[in-house]
Design a protein around this nucleic acid. Sequence first.
RNA 1: GGUCCCGUAGCUCAGUUGGAUAGAGCACCAGAUUCCUAAUCUGGGGGUCACUGGUUCGAAUCCAGUCGGGAUCACCA
Length: 587
Amino acid sequence: MNLYTHFGEQLTGVLEALREQGVLPLDADFSRITVEPPRDPSHGDIATNAAMVLAKMAKMPPRDLAKKITELLLQLDDVKKAEIAGPGFINISITALFWQKILIAAFDNEGLYGRSQLGQGQKINVEFVSANPTGPMHVGHVRGAVFGDALANLLDFTGFDVSREYYINDAGAQVDVLARSAYLRYLEALGEEIGDIPEGLYPGDYLKAVGADLAEKHGDEFKGQEESQWLETIRDFAIDAMMDQIRGDLKTLNITFDQFFSERSLKEGDVNMVAQSIEDLRDKGLIYEGTLPPPKGKLPDDWEDREQTLFRATDFGDDVDRALAKADGSHTYFASDIAYHRDKYMRGFTSMIDVLGADHSGYIKRMKAAVKALSDGEAELDVKICQLVKLLRGGKPVKMGKRLGTFITLREVVDEVGSDVVRFIMLYRKNDASLDFDFYKVQEQSKDNPVFYVQYAHARVHSVLYRKIPLEMPDLDIADIDPLSEDLSLLVDSGEVALVKRLAQYPRIIEQAAKAHEPHRVAFYLYELAADLHMQWSRGTEKPELRFISDGNKKVTGARAVLLLAIAKTLASGLGILGVHPIEEMR
RNA sequence: GGUCCCGUAGCUCAGUUGGAUAGAGCACCAGAUUCCUAAUCUGGGGGUCACUGGUUCGAAUCCAGUCGGGAUCACCA
């Protein structure tokens, strides 16, 4: 139950009544009305700007209109107070009974609290990671992987039909380089002296195993052969091996995909989908042969003013038209990507999200343009950019160099700090802001570390419910706690009320995070919920009567147990969206 | 030079898609532990929301421009 949409509906009922009375015109527009928590809690529980927004249409001063609205609001069962404030805000306080209803909703055993039908089962495609299959995943891929996975969780939680996809770039020049690199390792496995790996090939040790496997499978079949004899076989073998490795790497972060989509499959099926996509756009008059103006400023050294096949991206908001064919006649990466997104569209996805690294921000406009064009405006693409992660160790930057082979792999990061820590930290920042990841700080067990802080809150609750209550109040069986039979009106302390109110925010936060495609909002919410819990806990040290286990008072303890269970469930629910385990005890 | 992102407390960042007196953590200062984990909590100081205009009942938020930082800039992926 979302408190604000609930009262939004109630308010709409009131406004419709006023429209019937002729106070509001028949065509009154309610769309700009908001129903929100006021920033200052002393203003009540819910604030609406309805009177200010509608004042002009009603041709009366905001405060006068507010008076008419509040009179009707006060007749509603769940409204305790409705007051006019400032220029015409209406502040609503709701009844204690209604807060109890919310607590009961939050207690829900099926994990339904916070779920919504926002997505209405709409299909949505989330493409993320899509790292080149030329080596193990390195630390640069981690953020996008975690972000995409959490976003997919969030959308699933809010009623979308989500597909997680990984686009395998297995058609470009880079996989040929991979094949040549693997071929060298293959020769090495056959006992040849290969010396240093030449510049331009992949030097990593991870290809040694691929070479050995090739040698075992093919013997010396390819030894001394022309490249054309072995390239394809070895390339396919190496790509499969790399994808296995990548899948394994992602598994350490509990990330799986619904679909791995091969770029090559677009070109090698019965019909060349890339060519067909271009023809499709050509039929729409969006393709032409022409020349591009050279980029302003410094001219590239090898600039060549030639005619090329261009997509009219400028018709859809891009800055220049974009090339679809290279000088040698083959398709550009962009052309393949158009075909891929067209494939998504034809599979029924009118809503797509691409999660990309910061270095691809220049790619956004053309891809959005392409999706609009190929779907005749029916499909929507949102591109989420994940900014760089700065790796630190005790405040000092971790030095990495691909050439030196000192880049840090995803697996090394997860092995050192654990999946939960990696995931939470990566999500505790807005995706388009850069992020510091300090190996030492993220493992610190102190309140400076948000992962720990939230985990600790969950463990604390668990400790009271399942360790202390059985000891101190053995006749209260937590497993049998039923919010409907406990007297929730006993939760009157300000800290308890604050916790219930915080729980009430959860559905709204989830919905906003899902709409904005911003899972970090969930992480920040969990931090606040944890803070409220720790605060209430500490108040119990000063005032023993506020402790969750109320000495000898089974009724009060029972009511507080309902609150604690609701908190634990909400923490677990939110952490679940982030893909972080709610731990039950600290070690 | 074009485009995109960012600019909020000394530092790291939130800011409910336009609401009321702009928030949290760190750091700094002052406190709390015979107690369910003090692995925590309480209080305090600290701001020209980069700047200038505009839109309106109302702007950190939207628009235009300026300044500063980052990414990117035919054909690579």
